[in-house]
Design a protein around this nucleic acid. Structure first.
Length: 107
DNA sequence: AGTTTGACGCTCC
DNA sequence: CGGAGCGCCAAAC
């Protein structure tokens, strides 16, 4: 477990249900600005070993689901998010103003 | 150790 | 709104 991954997962665990964040912002808040792409690798490393990390709350800047992981499928991610109240529009994207996570938001 | 790939993002067009 | 180009960093080759 690298420092980067630990910082990332720690930050991710602070995000409450029904809230989402994009890769770049997650990296930024975790203290690794510019590591947006690396976030994908870090989340891909997630599996059954880290059930406490809400990987499904991470989507891309466009507000759409990006995963292509066979273990954590886009379908599963969308289901999990919808179960938390996150709504997707006709284009399959979410509204950041409605569901975006604000760091200063109380947990 | 050099290259290629990929759950990204920003800027143009 | 959709797509191409480029910079980004870690992992996989």
């Amino acid at each position: 477990m690298t420092d980067f991954q630990e910082a990332l997962y720690t930050t991710l665990r602070r995000i409450p249900p029904g809230r989402v964040i994009n890769y770049g912002r997650l990296a930024l808040v975790a203290g690794y600005p510019g590591y947006a792409r690396a976030v994908g690798s870090a989340l891909h490393a997630l599996d059954e070993r880290y059930p406490a990390v809400p990987w499904w709350r991470v989507i891309n800047q466009a507000g759409r689901i990006s995963t292509n992981c066979p273990v954590h499928t886009a379908l599963e991610q969308r289901s999990r998010l919808e179960a938390e109240g996150v709504q997707f529009n006709e284009q399959g994207s979410i509204n950041w103003q409605r569901h975006g996570w604000l760091e200063n938001e109380a947990v």
